[in-house]
Each structure stands twice: as C-alpha cells, then as structure tokens.
Design a protein around this nucleic acid. Sequence first.
DNA 1: ATGCGTGCAAACGATTTGCAGAGAA
DNA 2: TTCTCTGCAAATCGTTTGCACGCAT
Lengths: 131, 131
Amino acid sequence: MSATIHDRRNTVQKEAVKEALETAPGFISAGELHHRLNEEGTAVGLATVYRQLNALVETGRADTINVAGGQLFRACEPGDHHHHLVCENCGVAVKIDPPSEDWILAAAAHNGFTVTRHVVEVFGRCAACAV
Amino acid sequence: MSATIHDRRNTVQKEAVKEALETAPGFISAGELHHRLNEEGTAVGLATVYRQLNALVETGRADTINVAGGQLFRACEPGDHHHHLVCENCGVAVKIDPPSEDWILAAAAHNGFTVTRHVVEVFGRCAACAV
DNA sequence: ATGCGTGCAAACGATTTGCAGAGAA
DNA sequence: TTCTCTGCAAATCGTTTGCACGCAT
C-alpha cells in the first residue's frame, strides 16, 4: 500500500518510460521495457522503470495484468475499459469493445455480490501469427 | 515448459493437498494451503504443495489465477469453464455460468484472432462481506 | 536553495530445484 | 528391490526499498 503520488516533476526518465510503454506493441514486462530503454540509449534504472510503471498504473494511464512470471504493462487512456485480445506469440494487444458486460453485473447481483473490478483477458493468435 | 507427469503413485500428501484444495472456500494461495495443512496435522512440505498444485493444474483438476503477490488456486472439474466471481474479502468464489461468450469469439474473429484461452475474473464483495 | 526523483545494491517474498532419503508398487 | 515422491534448504526470479546524490523547480 502506498499512495505513490501524482506528477511533481518532469524528468527525462519519466518521459522515456511513458513513451517506451506507448511504443510497445502489446503488453510488456518491466524488465523487457527496461532492456529496450537501455538499448535505445536512454539509460534508465530498473527501479525507476518499476516506479514509473506503477505510478502510471495508479494514475490510470497504464493498464496491468498478472501472468505467471510477473506482471505486464500496457499504456492506456484513463478510464479505459481494460479488455484485451492478446496474441500469445507476438504480444500484440487489441482492445475489445465492451459489447455487454451487463451479464457480469447481473451474475454478481444474482449472487449478492458488489462488483469492484473485473478482468477479461483473451489469449490467442493474431492473424499474422496464426499458422 | 515441462511435461510434469501424470499420476504415478498415490501418496498421503497428494491426497491431502487435493482435499485441502477442495475444502477451501474459494481461491487460495499455495502458502496459505500449506499453512492449513500443517495446522490440520498433516505435515506437508511447501515444495510438495507447489508440486502437487502445479500437477493438478496441468491435469486440469485445478484452476489458477494470477494476482499481485502470487497465484491462487482452486479445485475444479476437468473441462470446467473457469469463470468466477471472487469476493475480495473472504475469498469465496462463485462460479458464473457462461451466458454468452460468443462476443469473445466474435471480437476475436473480427480481429483475425484465434482464441486459445480466455480468462474472466470478477472481483467484488459477497453479500456477507458487503458493508 | 529545496526536495523530489533516480540509481545502485541490498532486501524481500513467492516459487522452483538439487539432492538424499522414505515409501509405493 | 526399484524408482517416484517428499522434505529441506539453497537457488532463482521478479519486484520493492533504503540511502545518498543530481536535477527540476
């Protein structure tokens, strides 16, 4: 638990992490992002990558999902619905429109549940990766 | 990667882990399960708990979800649909029937994706835990 | 000048694995 | 007996944190 603030200062690293995240094709791990940044020439510490990534998630400018082996991040607009179609091969993530998540609320209500958050992640192969 | 077998031998621990998992109210962590087993008097090593848990998942007799801080397990029937309503407070998990996951397939098809697996997890508060 | 943000390395918690011994077949 | 499974402890891996310094304000 830790209210890790709002932006107070602008730094090169902050911008670098944010941009690298937005440039990434799909979900990307903190380590991978760190790796890319350093290859790009922008030296950023791994700790900073994590700190910025978490800050972005907290402020709603990034999205995160947990998979075996760690968590993956993806840039997204604040208030975004967080539903994706993720390619297991190339990592591309396509946003899925929320056709009807009423059934979730309905199912919840039916069981006396109050929904606080829900995650819908669909994994598969994108057209390019499908053999 | 690792084809970690099928059952070859029956052991007390194997049964203990499986039963403890089935007895648990909702999703439970490996550590928590290990803790309970030892309290129940059934001494089982943590490593074994992990090994059995993974074996169960691989053979489809258990379900797992990844959350911050680790993965949680839950017993389930092979071929089960893996959709739950999880109470963030007491951990109870209610199975949600798949009213229409056609939209998932539709969205996938629309983007040229081939779906291999999808996860739908809804978190909230059950009636008892709702304030 | 004032502190927030960064980098490094140590700390951490969860999960995995090597190895020798116990128990199932 | 044979060979798998268990237990323990050490090893990993991803992520977080403490601390001193640099840079944005």
